[in-house]
Design a protein around this nucleic acid. Sequence first.
RNA 1: GCUCAGGUGGUGGAAUGGCAGACACGCUAGAUUCAGGUUCUAGUGCCCAUAAAGCGUAAGGGUUCAAGUCCCUUCCUGAGCACCA
Length: 785
Amino acid sequence: MGWDAFGLPAEQHAIATGEHPAVQTRRNIDNFRRQLQMLGFAIDWDRELSTTDENYFRWTQWIFLKLFRHGLAYVSEKPVWFCPALGTVLANEEVQNTPEGPRSERGSHPVERRPIRQWVLRITAYADKLIEGLDHVDWPDSTKRLQKNWIGKSEGAEVTFKLDGHADTLTVFTTRPDTLFGATYMVIAPEHPLIEKITSAEQKAAVNAYVAAVRNKSDLERTDLADKKKTGVFTGAYALNPVNGAKIPVWTADYVLITYGTGAIMAVPAHDERDWEFAKQFALPIIQVVGSKDAIDVNEQPWTEDGPMVNSGPFNGLSATETKKQITADLAAKGQGKLAVNFKLRDWLFSRQRYWGEPFPLLWVSREDYAKIPADSEVREFLPKEPVTCQLNGVEVCAVPLTSKQLPLTLPTVKSYQPSPTGDSPLSKEPEWTEVWYDVASGATVAQSQAQPGPLWVKASRETNTMPQWAGSCWYYLRYLDPQNAKDIASADALKYWGCPDFYIGGAEHAVLHLLYARFWHRFLHDIGVLPTAEPFTKLFHQGLIMGEDGEKMSKSRGNVVNPDSIVKDHGADALRMYLMFLGPLEASKPWSSEGISGITRFLKRLWRLSVDEATGGPSTKINDQAQEPEDFVRELHRTIQKVEKDIETLQFNTAISQMMILMNAAEKAPALRRETVETFVRLVAPFAPHVCEEIWARLGHQESVSGAAWPKFDPAKLMESTVEIIFQVNGKVRATVKVAKETSKEALLAMAKADPSVQKFLEGKPIVKEIVVPGRIVNLVVAG
RNA sequence: GCUCAGGUGGUGGAAUGGCAGACACGCUAGAUUCAGGUUCUAGUGCCCAUAAAGCGUAAGGGUUCAAGUCCCUUCCUGAGCACCA
């Protein structure tokens, strides 16, 4: 069991009450643990961990330092999603588009773009591996598709355009280099750095106004889909088409995103819907270069499918694929283009301006002090090849790591958990913790309030951001293998013995969050030799949510939360467990029903009465080893063993329980049962309702726990039926059913069907045009008319 | 707008192309009990006085001896993506 206990809920509680988040976290964990134990889940409590334990998060920090060491952690000042209500930045994956605009995944608060200094993990370096790895795991196709789309790989070319009258060039990314002859204008994003340089004097005012307007546009307005109208302004600059020297105007428009590709495009209105709309809007020329099937007029609508090239000089008549290849090769020869791959995936924004998270085990020192790190310094354990730098209060500083010996870096106690509106972490207000002497030889630190301990101790400021909640949950499954290990995240032996989770059950909402992040870390740890496996989760299954009784997601504000404590009080832990399984397919979302559970409660009471004698408390008087059980009942018993076994393996618990109820109905009708039969039944129910079965098992005279009893075996011979029911149909409609011996031949079945009075009634002497006989199942007579 | 998953009684849900509605809840009637959030019995898709027949798995069409299941069109619900060049 692992508690993923860092994060916003505990911190928001701390802000509201002043209580340390650790205190509330511990109280919550204790309550959850009590409830889980009450339900009797088979959890190995010796392997319990919490992501907030310093003996756990020292390894989270260690993994981060490994990423830092390998150049996969860097600082960015690009605009990021900031949530004023939560007082922190959020990763792309944590922001959702809603009709009200972009909102935080947690709490659905408005978010906005702000330029804030952030730690970022280079997950894009793993984009290809993260796509490729999906081919080797047994995951739902929908989830694989979700991840693939999120990573969004597209292959194409980068094409460099010379700018008329400028030394600068403009590089664009395109997936359609084949349509280069159809480029009639260019667009650069309003945030593009070149815009200042290339805008002509006449257009300066218009462009500045447009750029300012876009900057002030909220993300809601900018992504509003109801308003598909394109806006944009001509910059006054012209680019030269590398294939034919054509002079084409350069515009700026906000439908081109600075965050994707090069932030600039070549526009081919004849063959791209967005470019077509823009061209129509501003009366720009539209040139068809790809032949269409039904002579489509590209002035009326764009043609986005393939066809032979036209209006493309030497490439006329060639296929799109061939043209792509040749044009890209030609451009490469001229130094004006190359094959290129782009991803929608952005690097992972990894810092939060919060208190309740793992502190970054990093400090900032001046460039001069960074240069003092000796060649044999222990600090080099985690030092990257190139320093990671940023500007702090206008001064350039370099990031230096702690060493393994210095971990864990724990949180200081603070006066206030409140984040500042400017996006500073509460930790930044604790100078005693942040301002330290740092030994460039050993990585040790002491507070600056003390005297400088030695000549190699330099002034350093700790990083005051903390890691996001995902950090701790990225690798917890590895710690289960060896939770007490003080030397490694887990021993090599344990990693080799246990491997990875064979089967991972979790919500689909994690498809592009936890499941993507964890794969990234796992693959990285594999690449640096820490882990023997490349992929963490071999087989994945998404369970559905249990909804409130009103069919809506359970939430405190809605008041439809079901408290397990009161259910257990009324019906018992077994009934709760079993009813959750009986509600419906595991993968489906199903509403809770406070009435429905009584069906399970009744079933368990009936099992008790079937096995235990109320008067003596010993075995039921119905149990008699001399009993002759009817053949039908014995078959049902073995059918139940078979079905429960199979359904458990395929996670179809609802139908397993249905079958046990069918057996119960049959067992109550039997005049007497053999002890073996009752014990088999109890063993079948035991995994679902362990507590009551344990008690029954003891009442039946067993000293050992039923959980250790062997699983019943079904006898295939007992499943055989000597007679089968055959359906007689006329024109596909059932007219009679008969019981016959299993071996009855086709011919005999046919004769019986024809002789059956209720069948004859519908034959009415009409000619039979077709006879279908499926032995053991059905006879269908097709008559004319 | 695009992609995916769905749509079956009053409810949750069953159904290797072969009797639609298993199992359970609820409901109706009866019995048991001092009592019932007890237990037992019978019934419970629609139409119908009853039986027989007929109708019935979002709507329409198709394939098949036979379709909830396979194919096409439309509608609806849910999820994800959303100007990604």
